[in-house]
């Protein structure tokens, strides 16, 4: 696994930055909006629970885009870059790269347009964004925001574990994208809740997610996670863990 899969409990870091703003630079809002539109226009929404008629939406976007795609972009980069780049800088790089890879734009096009905008900025001129586009695209974006994309699915799967069971987190490779915090691997926990029905992750990961499966709320005692001198006495760490990551203790 990479360091970004294994952040929990790192020692010797600086004090936290308590900055309360969501966006610390104006441009960060724009890449957030683009990502959210991609989520709303993704071609996998034809299989979602809300009645999205996604193939009829007049956007040229015809790709699969989910949180997994965005997260994989950030998890895939070199750990030094992961920590050097601010949160939305990673988004900007990952999303731009996706549009180039999928053939919507070329790298040259993006670089040339950015150079023109930079020149305008240097000349104190504001580059206007293009106008227009089919309003039905924005109708779908709003519908997605209001109706979402629930991952809950009815299946006939019987959960392998029950409330009260002591379980162990598997030791596995994170691959390019994982939903298992690395520091939990091999650790013991207690099942607090077996969530009703199953949950999909939409996207298949190398470490076993994708198809609907049970999810558990697990409780980890501090002393089962950290060396005694490092723990907060009496604290409990809870996390929701997909069944693919759990084995009997």
């Amino acid at each position: 696994m990479k360091l970004q899969h294994n952040l929990g409990g790192l020692e010797g870091l600086d004090p936290v930055n308590t900055e309360p703003r969501v966006f610390v630079e104006d441009w960060e809002q724009r890449i957030f909006g683009i990502h959210t539109a991609m989520m709303a226009l993704s071609n996998h929404l034809d299989k979602s629970l809300p009645d999205y008629d996604i193939s009829q939406v007049p956007s040229t976007f015809d790709s699969f885009w989910s949180w997994a795609h965005l997260r994989e972009g950030a998890e895939n980069i070199h750990p030094f870059d992961y920590f050097r780049l601010r949160y939305y800088e990673k988004w900007l790089g990952g999303i731009s790269g996706f549009f180039v890879e999928e053939g919507y734009i070329t790298e040259d096009e993006l670089n040339e347009r950015a150079a023109l905008i930079l020149k305008d900025m240097a000349d104190n001129k504001s580059t206007e964004l293009p106008e227009g586009g089919d309003p039905a695209i924005d109708t779908q974006v709003e519908k997605y925001l209001r109706e979402g994309d629930s991952p809950k699915r009815s299946t006939d799967i019987t959960p392998k574990f029950n409330v009260g069971d002591t379980v162990r987190i598997k030791t596995i490779s994170a691959g390019t994208h994982s939903r298992l915090p690395g520091n939990l691997q091999g650790r013991i926990a207690q099942v607090m809740e077996v969530y009703e029905e199953s949950y999909t992750y939409f996207y298949e990961t190398a470490d076993g997610l994708g198809t609907p499966m049970p999810v558990y709320n697990l409780a980890f005692k501090a002393e089962d996670l950290w060396e005694q001198s490092l723990i907060e006495p009496g604290s409990i760490y809870y996390n929701d863990i997909f069944e693919a990551y759990i084995e009997p203790a």
Binding site: G33, L92, F99, Y104, A114, I117, G133
Partner: peptide
């Protein structure tokens, strides 16, 4: 970011 948004509007991905 602005270059990307401009191109996506021109190409009909978003409005």
């Amino acid at each position: 970011a602005k270059a990307l948004e401009s191109l996506l509007i021109e190409k009909g991905v978003i409005t």
